[in-house]
């Protein structure tokens, strides 16, 4: 056990996992928020577009998206993000994690919007705010507060889903390194538990923080 920790850069691999998580969390939050606005907007085309995106991305396996990004986008369509193949895979992994989880973020925020009584949106529009203004000033701030718990669950799922990126990313990230250790040293339960522990350390504080935040920031009605 000690020599496994000594011989392999486990912390480095988890650092890449953290990088992937943070970058894709930001990416998915931005895309997801835009999608949520689409889905509650008064324009029918935008609503349909948002619903289409969510239904397609949410129902596609992430492994498939990952492999498609390299075999389809990067290699066949030639959309290479870097001349270095490892970097190319890295950025495609960030993009695919972002667009995939954006669907879940969108639904979390939309559920947050739905917790706001319809009267508030009507009141905002009747005092002359545009759709954009009422979204920015009235609805989204409350929606985010109401959506903290489901957003937290999505973030935890995202952190664990970074392991799926191992199918294109090689040994840079935790699950890929685990594959390499298994190849060299044979599969052993202690190594599995070590990696499982790593993910528990990453995700458990988030779960606890989200629970207390959602209680503290809940909109008092």
């Amino acid at each position: 056990m000690g020599d496994i920790i000594g011989n392999y850069d486990i912390l480095g691999a988890f650092w890449v996992t953290i990088q992937l998580s943070v970058l894709s969390a930001l990416g998915s939050l931005v895309i997801g928020t835009v999608l949520a606005v689409f889905r509650v907007s008064p324009v029918r085309v935008l609503r349909a577009l948002g619903a289409f995106y969510v239904n397609v991305l949410r129902n596609t396996p992430l492994t498939l998206l990952m492999v498609f990004s390299i075999l389809g986008m990067s290699i066949i369509l030639g959309l290479q993000l870097s001349q270095d193949q490892a970097r190319d895979s890295y950025w495609w992994a960030v993009i695919m994690l972002s667009v995939y989880h954006a669907a879940f973020v969108c639904e979390a925020i939309r559920s947050g919007v739905n917790t706001i009584p319809a009267g508030q949106a009507e009141a905002a529009r009747s005092i002359g705010l545009t759709f954009g203004q009422s979204m920015r000033e009235v609805l989204l701030p409350q929606a985010f507060r109401g959506a903290i718990a489901p957003l937290g669950s999505t973030l935890i799922a995202l952190i664990k889903n970074t392991t799926v990126a191992a199918v294109i990313l090689g040994t840079a990230e935790a699950a890929g390194l685990l594959a390499q250790i298994t190849e060299n040293e044979g599969a052993s339960l202690p190594t599995f538990f070590l990696f499982a522990l790593g993910f528990v350390i990453l995700t458990l504080p988030i779960g606890l923080a989200v629970t207390s935040l959602s209680r503290r920031l809940a909109v008092k009605r």
Binding site: I70, Q83, Q85, A86, A166, V167, I168, L169, G170, G176
Partner: peptide, 9 residues
């Protein structure tokens, strides 16, 4: 040295 390696599953 400096191999440009792509790794798949």
């Amino acid at each position: 040295a400096g191999v440009n390696l792509r790794e798949f599953g």
